[in-house]
Amino acid sequence: MEHNGKKRGRIGIGGLYAYFFLGALILIMIFASDAFLTPYNLYNLLSTAAIKGILACGMTFIIITGGIDISVGSNLAFGGILVAALLGSTNATGLFAHLGNVPVPLAMLIGVLACSLIGFCNGFMVTKLRIPPFIATMGMMQITRGLSYICSGGFAVTFKKDIPSFQWIGSGKIGAVPSIAIFFIVIAVIFGYILKFTSYGRFLCAIGNNEVASRFSGINVNKIKMLAYTTLGTLAGLGGIILTARLNSATPDAGMGYELDCITAVVIGGTSLSGGKGTIAGTVAGIFIMVVLATSLNLLGVQSIYQYLSKGLILLIAVLIDSYLNRRRG
């Protein structure tokens, strides 16, 4: 039968298209620009892809359940500012002004937990309070962005002194590979594994396909969904730490538009916006398509203002492919 799951391959039709497209894009760029294959460019490419990629892994889970989280970018900014303040900073305001000199691991733990809590609140609103995910997380997006501005006084929060162990997280290398690329790979592998091989992954897909039937099968739908939102919160915290470590400061407007890039990458990667199916491998391809495209346009001398156009077009094309495939499946 044509719809046999086995024949559709491991990453789904949508994911497969994404890899073809990514391959073609890279091939074209290798010929079009000498600067593309340079170590400097590749390093940049990996680093840029990593943070959004980490978030996109969590976003994939949420979109598979049929939900969405647009608070992820401002959640990341809040996490960054909190950690920077805990580590001792020049200009945090309000409550945050008195923080500082917290050991690095503890600061990171607090930052990640705070962001997880924000994610949990998203999940709570979506499941228990039955607020539509888009609206619930839109509210949370404004709240955390506001908190970031309030706590930082609106300025970048910079460290009083160098903290090498913390900075390594953002700009260290293992061999020739940037540390943050390693984080991304580890997280992508873990999330891919969870989705494909664990009962949690199976339940995510079941809920996205048919929430009622899932409940009738004894699945604790609310718990699974809340965990997905909490997990994305945790990843946003991690992302905030990595970005802060990389830039050596935290800004309240960090992560602006990351939610859109993540969602676009997830959809390009073949995860259906209506939920029920998706893969991490596809999402990874999606992220790289976005990043390679942006880098390529830079290398080709296209002004960055045109990149919005390309992002938008790619998202729409991906959604068109998704809906076309859905329709063909009947």
């Binding site: 091989f197 664990t198 009962s199 199976r202 339940f203 897909c205 396909n209 009738f216 699945i219």
Partner: peptide, 30 residues
């Protein structure tokens, strides 16, 4: 609407309510 997840496979549907019996020792992996 309630009995089956139509877009999932026969296998996934049959084990949906009892996946825990196919888990490894840690209770994580199918």
């Amino acid at each position: 609407e309630k009995g089956l997840v139509l877009r999932m496979s026969v296998k996934d549907n049959v084990t949906l309510a009892s996946l825990e019996q196919f888990m490894d020792k840690l209770g994580l992996v199918v």
